[in-house]
């Protein structure tokens, strides 16, 4: 789905300090995405149940999966989010605004934003 990116280099930039930074950033970005008018909810960037076993694990441990995933790909931050959009505004415009808001928040860091609208309406 992220054609412009080098998928082979998708591993986070190692150091734990860096990944902690990414965690904080992901939380900030979640707020940014949620505050875009027309976004009704944000879904985990990776489908919750890739497998049934995964579902059991998350139920047992109570872990909530990441709503926004961030990957540092050769200096460019790849941001991935899946959103639900209400019908008050056109979904394509909302998706564009989400991408722009994320990009603006990250400036001057270069970013590639991937937004999937997985639900339109109530």
């Amino acid at each position: 789905m992220t054609e412009p990116m080098d998928v082979g280099a998708a591993a986070p930039a190692s150091a734990s300090a860096a990944s902690a930074d990414l965690g904080i950033l992901a939380e900030q970005l979640l707020g940014v995405v949620q505050s875009v008018e027309g976004v009704s909810s944000v879904y985990p960037a990776q489908p919750l149940w890739q497998s049934i076993a995964g579902a059991v694990l998350s139920v047992v441990t109570g872990d909530t999966p990441a709503l926004i995933t961030l990957t540092d790909e050769a200096g460019v931050l790849a941001v991935k989010t899946r959103i639900a959009v209400g019908t008050s505004r056109p979904a394509p415009a909302v998706a564009r605004e989400v991408a722009e808001a994320v990009r603006r928040h990250l400036l001057p860091r270069p970013a590639a934003v991937d937004v999937s609208v997985v639900k339109v309406g109530v």
Binding site: A95, R96, A99, A112, V113, D114, V115, S116, V120
Partner: peptide, 8 residues
């Protein structure tokens, strides 16, 4: 932005 990919 050409860097972004948007989908429904």
């Amino acid at each position: 932005n050409p860097q972004d990919t948007l989908w429904e």
